[in-house]
Nucleic acid binder design. Structure first.
Lengths: 229, 229
DNA sequence: AAAACTGCCATGAAAATGTCATAACGGCCT
DNA sequence: AGGCCGTTATGACATTTTCATGGCAGTTTT
């Protein structure tokens, strides 16, 4: 299973290094910065799975970074955990209202932050935590790399697997071909957008079973979405 | 939109009543109990959208309730926010590891809990947290690219979708054909103003349902507006 | 070496779009 | 009432976009 990608935005150098070390030894891929603007850049060029964001940082403020992450389509749904000083309840509420998913007050134990990160990821992207995902009548076991539908084991190629996994992590949501290329093929892949159609077709073929209706919805001039059942 | 259903499990009677009152006045449907076993029953008979769970309660302990909620298929994915005493970091970590989504330490401000509940719901059921636009009996989910009216899924083309989305973002306001062209077709589009009429007609046709009155109002020599219901 | 996989293209089908001609409508005047 | 004029509604149509599908050649995996 691919390591969950964390983006750590933290001023305090000692703390940042400590956390980076701890998270990496827990199997996360961490990129860290102390600067808000740089954080936005990093997030834009390779969408992280989760952002840990100190509220008091250089460059754009934490609130501002949060707001801007939410505004960008590619990062709008990335969960954010913010770090705040203990007293600042007002900050916390404003942070949550701006779109942060969670906060933790300083000082905190790394162990607690780890638990919190795991909890958020489990909620948002169960597959990253190694849990099986179910969407409608399909079930995906990321550990065993298995996909089944109504008890039938499905045979899909690597690309189709990544594609369906991504869809199952975000059911019902419509993704443009560009977004799918970024998410499934990797940011900056130089692939024809039309090629996505082809893989959609292959996936459709692979998950056809008991002639139940096709769970992949085509949204004209917008993209595709996976609908339960 | 249906009110999000909360299940509140709290010992402290005064606090429970306060929270119940606050949440109800925010538009949530709250059921409350002080007892862990009863909480499980309530959850089983009508699955809530979110559970607020005090860690120290009668009957089954908070941890136990959490575990059992997770084990039952119908409640396995219901988010849980737990309430803990400030010192008990160990409880918090164990709670998160057991499957709680979030915790908040006592004492806390109701306002903060409200923000937290909203944050969790936003993630789990976007439709409950205001990411959908509602005008009258119509509901638009931009993420899923879906439009429905009175429970009926509506089938609209891309242009009609953009058009109705724009209208729903500015209900009741009258827009001239020129304004609609700018907003929906893009500034500087070289399109006949009369063409707007045609798309209005197509939209009207698409959103006709149960022969309810047409929500699009024609304003002679001025333009069109969307009126609720 | 065989099989599986990938990306791309050509083709045909389906859906969406912009225009026009014409009918219907609304307000206003006599 | 009736008639007139400007505005809007509607159906039809040609064109353009967008998508589904089968095939193919080059790679990678087994």
């Amino acid at each position: 299973m691919s390591a969950p990608k964390l983006l750590l935005v933290e001023d305090d150098k000692a703390l940042a290094e400590l956390l980076e070390y701890r998270f990496e030894s827990e199997g996360y891929a961490v990129r860290a910065t102390a600067d808000g603007d740089e954080a936005l850049m990093l997030a834009a060029e390779d969408t992280p799975d989760l952002v840990i964001l100190d509220w008091m940082i250089e460059g754009a403020s934490g609130l501002e970074v949060c707001r801007r992450l939410r505004r960008e389509k590619s990062t709008a749904h990335v969960p954010i955990i913010m770090l705040t000083a203990r007293e600042a309840e007002d900050d916390r509420v404003r942070g949550l209202e701006t779109g942060a998913d969670d906060y933790i007050t300083k000082p905190f134990s790394p162990r607690e932050l780890l638990a919190r990160v795991a909890a958020v990821l489990r909620r948002v992207r169960p597959a990253l935590a190694g849990e099986t995902i179910e969407v409608g009548d399909m079930r995906l076991d990321p550990v065993a790399h298995r996909l089944e539908r109504r008890g039938h084991e499905l045979q899909v190629g690597p690309t189709e697997y990544r594609l369906v996994k991504f869809f199952m992590e975000h059911p019902r949501r419509v993704f443009s071909r560009g977004q799918l290329l970024d998410a499934v093929w990797g940011t900056g892949s130089e692939i024809e957008e039309r090629t996505v159609d082809v893989h959609i077709r292959r996936l459709r073929k692979a998950i056809t079973v008991e002639n139940v209706r096709d769970p992949i919805r085509t949204v004209r001039s917008a993209g595709y979405a996976l609908e339960p059942v």
